[in-house]
Design a binder for these strands. Sequence first.
RNA 1: CGGGAUGUAGCCUAGUGGCUAAGGCGCCUGCUUUGGGAGCAGGAGACCGAAGGUUCGAGUCCUUCUAUCCCGACCA
Length: 571
Amino acid sequence: MKASKFFFKTYKEVPKEAQTPSHILMHRAGMIQKLASGIYNYLPLALRALKKIENIIREELDKRGCQEVLMPAVQPAELWEESGRWKYYGPELLRFKDRKNSDYCLGPTHEEVVTDMARKILTSYKQLPLNIYQIQTKFRDEIRPRFGLMRGREFIMKDAYSFDISEEDAKESYKLMYEAYNAVFTRMNLKFKPVDAATGAIGGDMSHEFQVLAETGEDEILSCSKCSYCANIEKAVSGNELKKADLSKRKELAEVSTPGKKTIDEVSGFLKIEPAMLIKTIIYLVDDNPVAVLVRGNEEANEAKIQAFLGANAITPADDNTVKSVTGAEVGFAGPIGLKQKITIIADRQIYEDTGYACGANKTDYHITRVDPERDFTPAHVADITFAKEGDRCPNCKDGVLEKYRGIEVGQVFYLGKKYSAPMNCTFLDSTGKEQVAVMGCYGIGVSRTMASAIEQNHDDNGIIWPAAIAPFEAAVIPIQLNDEAVFGTAEKIYKNLITAGVDVFLDDRNERAGFKFNDADLIGFPLQIICGSRSIEKGKVEVKIRKTGEKKEIDIENITETIKDLLLTL
RNA sequence: CGGGAUGUAGCCUAGUGGCUAAGGCGCCUGCUUUGGGAGCAGGAGACCGAAGGUUCGAGUCCUUCUAUCCCGACCA
């Protein structure tokens, strides 16, 4: 491709809405344009990178027997009613009506459609295992789209779905996809970690996320310093030993007046006790039912763990009115003893490490002290519902400590079981002629997000540093003195030879000064720059600059094609 | 959805209630220049987010709407 005819434009200025490196650089390099909040045009540079990412995914999936299909972006409500998600999905699902007033939505994911597609064809166990995937535009009406392509409302996703005879087979399919994802991100030359993950609203009981490591990542990951344990902060478990409470210190309960003291800080300051010696009581709405959650005052409730433990679809902190009717007191005085309404109580296991806590009295302006969790109340559930922390023991090997990383979730694999196949009646006949429900898994890669995360992880002050495997172009030929026939002729010849050799190459034939072109090349991030200047060409050489290291080498013109191909293998 | 902020040319910004809305980047023409975002000269490009209102007079003040961004809860 010649620069003079290429549809792109670079910018020196940073648009004020762009905050994060990938967003700024994709805009400055002329890769994307915003059309609306969270909705972008992909210009040729971006599309080239996207296609490369897509092709790597295709190759790795096809190699493992997956088959590509294409499902519609527009989906009828009936299917979502069948799975039950029309009710549960919430406003993130963009719904609309057609001219006949029928309900439709833009697909945020395709479990319903793919299950429907599969059940129309699946009749026999002989057709399994089956794994079908697509690469397609998804729409999720995010509350807050941000960071350019990192969290768009419209985005490109590869989604795959496996169907198996049995749970054991389904877990094999899951493992195969786990391997495929490792292969995909390894080929893209990204630094990433597969991590244990919470399953969220999609459900199922086994899941891993693939996290590209980057400082700007929105997710926190805890990873063992010694073994391979690695988990999302939502899921990570502390391996620290629980202490045993010293019950000889038990004392009688006492009610104390704590006028206007509501927060942990206020109460612990007022009563002159450590925050850890308070039992924080938070009222949540779990699938619309109030639940009291108890954690030590120095801990945070981990909503993902609570949701997973209770097998709930949704969990949100209760509004003030609910809190008042449940506790009979103003917000800030809730406690496990003497709740006005009988509701489910779930306690973190750490509260049994001590005795003599303070907690709300369910009476405005009063707290109870000297509380002993074993003696004074009986929660319905005791579980790990707080966050593991950096420095905690590893729960797996008990030897290493947990280290914290930030990551961008670019892929996730889920074991679904029969969550969709059962309600949607996706069945087949087994070898004994008995009807069985297919066992499913689902597997996503955010394609556009992967592109953004590659930039997020690989850039410097001058621009993008593409891994060669997903760069829009592998190399740029940059002639310096355009009106010098020897220079321009050499550049064109190198360009043509590289194309013949199958290298994805860009010729910057624009009538601009050298510095201008160098800056653009650094910004766009070609892994290699082939600089053709009269000084080198007189010696039969050209300069090759490696974007990643900044290193420049003089290379004989006659060997240039081979040299470039060899260098690309290292990038 | 709660909290905060901002809408002036393709992009970044300036603009005390007062004449024809200013500058930089970018764009077009000409000359010059060609190894790290060149110089000179000329030129095009804005109903100042929208609608109301206050005022002799509104980019500037008020109201409503709308869009965008940032901080929180969701997700690839």
